[in-house]
Nucleic acid binder design. Structure first.
Lengths: 207, 207
DNA sequence: TAGATTGTTAATCGATTAACAATC
DNA sequence: TAGATTGTTAATCGATTAACAATC
């Protein structure tokens, strides 16, 4: 909780604004407007202006927003000024794909270390990531000062490992298992990635 | 669009109800109530009853919901009575992880075929999935009668391949690239999976 | 200056929740 | 029967949008 309790749905749109601004910036565009941004994102200009105005005035009447300044401002609001190191829990198929995925870089994250219980995997390297024994979870997370974890263990262990992560002081968990985790709301933020929930939403409209 | 235009946010909760009911069912539970379901999902009982009542009365006053019946009803509403074959576009790291992922089975999907442009990959098998030349996209999709695609190609090709998918008659795209796709709303449903958007949402609350 | 676009208020729209009669 | 819980209506809450004065 920061500032004066800004609605979560507003916060959830800021990363979308950010990636769109970064794309414009990469194309050499230096200025934009709520109208242009809205067209790119399928969001009304009024909503974009309203969202941004929660955090102050970033634009100039008549000429819109200076992209580099707005990018820096949103990054700062989202605490992306520095890079967050990330732990990947589980070195199975999903964990390995995440370890090898380069999309984290330049967007505020760096995947640093992996954990697994399989002696065959412990000690190996996957991409740039060392695989540690999950028995040393707490100790290693403290050593690397990691607050963000990607949970990619087998379903049956999801809740148990999540409990350990909370114990170890992790503050944000991105849950790749289809298990609905129960964690203390005041200690950790949890979000889930379950592609099948999204597919099932879409099949409603098909046929 | 089906029935009498039920809000999308209601539809998006049905898959969550379904997976929770399936988990209860697997544990041998045969009956539940909006109160119990709400506690498991962190949703108010009133909302669950309201959501379900869009589609008719599934419960019995005084005793709640018969789980097998409710599961079948929700499956049917979401068009999950039969299995949807799925095409994975791009046999890179993410595409391969998806091809090997077994979580689709039993939840209404079956990943059937892969596409790539790399001659080294074409003709190979990844798990049970044959890799086809993306040049034959349209023809193969028609042959296998596939309406659902997972898009996991390099960023730079995302929009171009999405256009081809629409052309080929795909009706639902789950977009694993961080690119915001522009597709005709009346021809295809698109949803995105970008883990970094979710991580950036959470970092707002950290520190 | 004239045109464009912001930031903000008020109006509208939609979603959630509380409450309760109906009834198993 | 008494207790529990649904389905539904009405009240509340929150989010989106329209409108416009301010001003670059």
């Amino acid at each position: 909780m920061a500032e004066k309790n800004i609605p979560s749905i507003v916060i959830s749109r800021l990363p979308k604004y950010l990636i769109t601004l970064e794309r414009l910036s990469a194309m050499g565009v230096e200025n934009t407007s709520s109208g242009e941004l809205g067209a790119l994102l399928n969001i009304t200009p009024a909503q974009i202006r309203k969202d941004l105005s929660f955090f102050g005035g970033f634009g100039k009447k008549g000429s819109g927003y200076a992209i580099p300044h707005l990018i820096n401002s949103i990054r700062s609001i989202l605490n992306l000024d520095s890079v967050w190191d990330v732990a990947i829990i589980g070195a199975g198929k999903i964990g390995q794909a995440l370890a090898l995925y380069e999309g984290f870089l330049n967007r505020g994250f760096s995947n640093k270390i992996l954990f697994d219980a399989d002696p065959q995997k412990i000690g190996q390297k996957i991409g740039n990531c060392q695989v540690f024994d999950i028995k040393n979870l707490k100790e290693k997370l403290r050593e690397y000062d990691i607050k963000v974890a990607l949970l990619a263990v087998p379903q049956v262990h999801a809740q148990e490992v999540a409990d350990q992560l909370v114990q170890a002081g992790i503050k944000a968990i991105l849950n790749y298992t289809p298990v609905y985790l129960t964690c203390p709301n005041d200690e950790v933020y949890v979000q889930q990635i379950d592609p099948i929930l999204q597919l099932q939403h879409m099949t409603y409209y098909l046929k």
